[in-house]
Simulated scan of single mutants.
Amino acid sequence: MNYKKTKISLLIAINTIAITSVYAHTFKLGQVGVDLSGFASTGMTVSSSTTPYAIPGHGTVDNHPNFATPSLLGLQLSADLGSGFSAVGQVVANGDSTNGHSAFNLTTPWLYLAYKVNSNLRVSAGRMQLPSYLYSQQIDVGYSYPYAFLPNEVYRIIPFYSFNGIKADYTFDLNQNWQLTLSPFYGQNDFKYDAMMRLNPTLQDKITLNAKAYNLIGSSIDLNNGSFSLHGAYMFSKVDVGATVQNKTINRKGINAQFLSLGANWNIHNLMLSTEIAYRKADPMASLLGEYITVGYSTHNWLPYISIANLHTTNSDTLNNPQNWPTEIPENQTTLSIGLNRYIAQNIVLKGEYSYIMPHNGQSGLFYGIPNGNVSMLTLSASVVF
């Protein structure tokens, strides 16, 4: 069985409702046809530092072997309601303890109703995945990408992945090979996120901020031809953030936040190339620019790869200005990763990944504190779709 071709088809399935639909199990609920599918990951990760390293959506990593951070289970139900209507729901439990989450509590990233207007246009309303990244639609489905964790320098830039609102997907064929999808959306989201804050000249601390994004408007665009996929996104939002810091309530309302991303994945013969860049502007909070590039080579159900990622804060002068304290501190780091995947079945992959994380100039990077120099991180995991 050619698992490599299955892998490539999953990597480019950016525009599908769910990556796991490939393995959906269909049954009847009354007169309604229902597809049930799922995905899971498990494993162990450990670093060389006592300072916790934050991977939003998964958890934290330090020098104690951690079996919660790489672990998750997700189930998805898709129901055909007839007359062009369908409903999609997804529940996920994972080991994430970042951004105010409790490990292994059930979350609902997807819960929406969709209407297929015609063969090209689908309109959805409810809770949906924010189409901000190349891998947004399968962000929890570890089988669909080579990494143990998606590159943190890019996928941490937006502190939430779902939104409540409406979205339209308009798909049309440019010719017999190329397909284009436009997906405008509008909505809002209440969320929490962890930020390393500068409280005074000598004190930095992790603060969990309560936040609300509203008037969230934007669009994504996807272009693919079966071996090449291109994803771009832009969105604008008003954001309110608040926290209690040293018994003092801090509120900042009406922050103008913008986000822009562009990513591409190219599979040619046995070679896989993937790259993505994302930018968040959110003065007076941290404005971030992140990018990564990955090269892999698939052979005999093995996929070795190497990846380099970088995160840079573009408004460090604003953040370092005492008049703005307390505010986020600059987040600058580079990560070099090498990994090896082994596809032992059509829907199961074993992964090993070593990452060397280099915070810049003695800063904290994406750690909860300042680590003692550069940090090594090792992850061994398995991912499955069913």
Rank of each mutant, 00 (worst) to 15 (best):
L260I: 15
I357P: 00
G290M: 03
L273C: 06
K281W: 11
N270Q: 15
N341I: 04
W266F: 12
V349I: 09
S355Q: 07
I293L: 06
A282T: 13
E328N: 15
S298C: 11
Y343L: 09
S287G: 15
Y292A: 05
V295N: 03
L271F: 15
F259H: 05
E331P: 04
I255R: 11
S298Y: 14
S337M: 06
T275D: 08
I338L: 07
P326M: 09
L271A: 12
T327K: 15
L288Q: 13
I277A: 13
G296S: 07
N270V: 07
L303T: 09
N270Y: 13
Y356P: 03
P304Q: 14
T275C: 13
M272N: 09
G362A: 00
Q258N: 15
W302S: 10
L350Y: 09
N341L: 08
H312W: 07
E353K: 06
S287L: 07
K351P: 04
Y279H: 05
A309L: 01
Y343G: 12
I277R: 05
K351D: 08
N361L: 02
K253A: 14
L260T: 12
T318G: 10
Q346K: 14
Q346V: 01
D317K: 15
Q346S: 15
L350Q: 11
T275S: 15
G296C: 09
I277Q: 06
N332I: 02
Y343F: 12
L271E: 13
Y305S: 01
L262T: 05
A278V: 01
I306W: 15
T275P: 00
Q346P: 06
I306S: 15
S261K: 00
I357E: 00
H312A: 10
M358N: 09
N267C: 11
S287F: 11
S316N: 13
H269M: 01
I293C: 04
S287N: 07
P284W: 07
A345E: 13
G254H: 14
I357L: 00
Q258A: 07
L289R: 02
I338R: 04
H300V: 01
I293S: 10
Y305I: 04
R252M: 14
G339S: 10
E291D: 05
L288S: 09
S316Y: 00
M285N: 06
S364N: 12
N324I: 09
T327E: 12
I357M: 03
A278T: 02
L271G: 11
A257L: 03
F259M: 04
M285H: 06
I255N: 15
A264C: 06
G365P: 03
